[in-house]
Each structure stands twice: as C-alpha cells, then as structure tokens.
Computed example of a mutant assay.
Amino acid sequence: MKPLDAHCHVWRLARGDYDWLTAGGAALSPIRRDFSVEEYPEATDLILVQAVPTRAETDFLLDIAAGDPRVVGVVGWVDLEHPDCAAEIETLARHPKFKGVRPMLQDIEATDWLIDHARPDAMASLVRNRLSFDALVTERHLPMLCDFASENRDLPLVVDHAAKPKPGPHPVWEEGMAALARLPHVHCKLSGLLTELTDPDRRDPLPALRSIFDQLLDWFGPERLIWGSDWPVLTLAASWHEWRNLTDLLLSGLSRSERTAIMRHNGARFYAVADQPIATSN
C-alpha cells in the first residue's frame, strides 16, 4: 500500500512571500532554503498545502501539481473576507487538483475571525464545488471552530496537526477536540505532532505521542484520522523516516484495514482524490 501524505509543503524562497520563514530566527535556519517535490523522501502520493497567505503561492503549487503525477491535490489560500472570494474559489475549482482552502487562522490575532469575517458565500462556493476546509488552529480556536463546523455541516473540515496539542493534560484541548469529533463531517490530521513536543519528549517521543494518539483514536475513530508528514517542517524535530516509523508503532494495535484507512484511504476520500472504502475492522 502506497501511503498518501495528506500534508506536505514545498517552497521557493526567491518567490519572495515566505516572510515567516525568511524573517524567522535561528530555529528555522535548517529549513530556510528551497524544497521541491523531487526532494520528498519516498515515492508517495502527495497533497501540497499552502504555507503563506497569497494567491501567488497557490498558483505556484497548482503549477507544480499540473506537471507532477505524485501531487494528487493542492490545498490553497483564498482571502475569505474579500468581496470576490466566492468567484475566486469558482475559478480555482476548475483546476482538477485544487481540493480546498486553508486560511492561516493560527496567525490571525482575532480568535473568532472565521465566524466574524469569512464570507458565507465563500463557504457556499466551497460546498458547491465539492471542496474542503483545512483548519490551521490551536487550542484557543477550538470552541469557535466547533461553532463554525456546526453551522457548515455540508463542508468537509479537517483539523490540521490535531490543533497542535502539547503533552500532558489540557482540558480545553480535550474538550474542544472531543466536541469537534462528535460532528461526523470533521476529520483530524495526524501530522505536525513531533514539532510540538518539548526537547525532553523528542528524545523519547513515543510515550507522549501515544497519549495524544489514543485520545484522537477514541474521539475520531480510524475512519476520520488522516496521516500527514508536515514535511519539511517536520525535519526541525525528526526525519521523515523517523516519523513514519513512529506512526507504524502508534498504529500497530489496529487492523490492517484500519491502518490502510489512516495512511491512505481516509485522506483520498476527504480530498476526493479517488473513491475509497471506509475502514472496517478485521
């Protein structure tokens, strides 16, 4: 089974809009260079996800997707409060590999921006064109996101990086994620978890990851968890192969069909890459 990496990035710094990366501190220096699909570590199908809030970068990713069969989908960016955003979504939807949008909610100061400022006609356009919504959020957004998801039940939604949990008990995160999981159109990505660990936990990451994963599995089940790498941001914490091996350990107690669902079928179904069966226990 060839996995589907439902969350990876590529960038070309000379394009000039990666401000978070070029102006970042020393911690980002290992990834402050160009990354291309050709460098991706495995022969895996890929969903490219936007990394800056510009239409130019979305067009850049779609150009890559048009010329590389490994890229089966692109999650782009649209200014969801612009009066013409619904029409822009209609235009992007004509590209066969455009699969959805991701506003960078974690970087917007107003926690309720999505509800207060994003245009309802943009959400209607996403639904009409069978597109999806990636929620790049942290713990502070979860009550708002639950309200948004409840009001937009026809819009497939996935929580990127499981809302970036920290190890240990966090009642707000737990309550928020459990509430989202009660909505059947909401999914969760197993991605970005390693980079949120503290340095001590990174030295032996499995216990901390197991604690997070077990809760996510209980809430979302194997039918709504979607695997991703968050490469190359991942490499700030570990290699792609280390994350893949840790994933195998986390999924080791599941049936083969459940593992395959998380590693490929759920992401393919969510992003309408192909018709895939829902996992069932063996």
Rank of each mutant, 00 (worst) to 15 (best):
His141Val: 08
Thr198Leu: 13
Met144Glu: 08
Ser191Leu: 06
Ala149Cys: 15
Asp134Ile: 05
Glu196Tyr: 03
His161Lys: 06
Asp204Gln: 15
Arg153Gln: 15
Pro207Glu: 11
Ile212Thr: 11
Gly168Trp: 10
Phe220Gln: 10
Arg210Trp: 11
His187Val: 01
Val172Ala: 15
Pro156Val: 08
Asp214Lys: 12
Gly221Lys: 03
Leu194Trp: 07
Pro156Ser: 14
Gly221Asp: 12
Leu136Tyr: 03
Ser211Pro: 01
Leu190Pro: 00
Ser211Tyr: 13
Asp134Gln: 13
Gly221Phe: 10
Arg202His: 09
Val186Cys: 04
Leu206Pro: 04
Phe220Ala: 07
Asp214Leu: 14
Thr195His: 05
Pro165Asn: 10
Phe220Leu: 11
Phe220Glu: 02
Asp160Tyr: 05
Leu155His: 10
Ala178Ile: 08
Leu193Asn: 05
Trp219His: 12
Pro165Ala: 03
His185Glu: 14
Val186Gln: 01
Glu196Cys: 02
Ala135Arg: 03
Asp214Phe: 08
Leu190Ser: 01
Asp218Trp: 12
Phe148Asp: 03
Leu209Glu: 04
Pro156Ile: 12
Trp219Pro: 09
Pro165Val: 10
Leu190Ile: 10
Leu193Tyr: 02
Pro156Tyr: 13
Trp173Ala: 04
Ala149Leu: 05
Leu216Trp: 05
Gly176Ile: 06
Glu139Gly: 07
Leu194Gly: 06
Glu174Ile: 08
Leu136Asp: 02
Phe148Cys: 08
Phe220Ile: 03
Pro167His: 07
Gln215Cys: 11
Leu209Val: 00
Ala163Tyr: 05
Arg153Gly: 04
Pro143Tyr: 09
Cys188Asn: 10
Glu139Val: 13
Pro169Met: 14
His161Arg: 10
Arg210Cys: 05
Leu183Asn: 02
His170Tyr: 11
Arg210Phe: 09
Asp214Val: 10
Leu142His: 07
Val172Met: 13
Ala178Lys: 15
Val186His: 00
Leu206Glu: 06
Gly168Arg: 08
His161Leu: 06
Phe133Ala: 03
Val186Trp: 06
Val158Asn: 11
Lys164Gly: 02
Gln215Met: 13
Leu136Asn: 02
Ala179Pro: 00
Leu145Arg: 09
Leu194Asp: 00
Leu217Arg: 10
Gln215Val: 07
Gln215Trp: 10
Arg202Ala: 02
Lys166Cys: 05
Leu183Ser: 03
Ser150Lys: 15
Pro207Gln: 13
Asn152Trp: 12
Glu175Lys: 14
Leu145Gly: 02
Lys166His: 14
Leu209Cys: 06
Phe148Asn: 00
Ala162Trp: 01
His187Glu: 02
Ala135Val: 09
Leu142Ser: 03
Val158Pro: 02
Lys166Arg: 15
Lys189Asp: 04
Ala149Ser: 09
Leu206Thr: 09
Ser150His: 13
